[in-house]
Design a protein around this nucleic acid. Sequence first.
DNA 1: AGTAATATTTGCATATTTTCAGAAATCAGA
DNA 2: TCTGATTTCTGAAAATATGCAAATATTACT
Lengths: 110, 110
Amino acid sequence: MEDDLTALQARLCKVLAHPKRLRIIYALRRGERSVGELAKELQLSYANLSRHLHILLEIGLVEARHHGRYSYYRLSTPQIAEACDLVRRVLRDRLTQLGQLAHANSKNHK
Amino acid sequence: MEDDLTALQARLCKVLAHPKRLRIIYALRRGERSVGELAKELQLSYANLSRHLHILLEIGLVEARHHGRYSYYRLSTPQIAEACDLVRRVLRDRLTQLGQLAHANSKNHK
DNA sequence: AGTAATATTTGCATATTTTCAGAAATCAGA
DNA sequence: TCTGATTTCTGAAAATATGCAAATATTACT
């Protein structure tokens, strides 16, 4: 039971473990988009983007709405994006720390 | 620059995207452990566990301390574990909702 | 209606990555 | 040197990512 949850969590992380999909998520955060709009915004081919959207859809991270020949996608679980932000903040801090270290070192070595 | 961050975030998610590694993280959350202790606790082979610990080490999620012939590992970034919890909570909620739906359906169909 | 044009998805082939088991290599201590 | 703890290597199976072409689906045009 608890193991199922862990397996599911791992699957979700795997879905998040791709730069393009992360960019898709962050883009959708600013509102619903059609595939074409996303393709232009993120500079991805339709085929590739469509595949990634399907993967996000499968795990339930996004939802789709079809209207005419357009498909619109939106985030279904904003909380996951918040978790992403948490991670992102940690990484950003870590990077700036490293940057400051490098800066300090370059001063010492000059 | 922002893209580097996204790439890094994806790499981190990839590291988290494995049930065994998640279980390792949750175990270490309860305190530092030697490889042997972890192996017993999580029922993993030394070789496999060592590999996963190395992966976690590489990305900086855990830190190691060597004493005699033992290696002790501990979480280096508790905040990441918190992000994991956030995700986990969302999934747990989703699962119980599905469970209740299934339950309601079975009532309707009987 | 029939045809062209547009938006999106899917099939196929290929290259790359990940996981894991078992064997071998290290390394520290008795 | 012998033993126990841990790590690394090797090779094979499975999963992923992606480009291109083809298939769908829906609207627009004549």
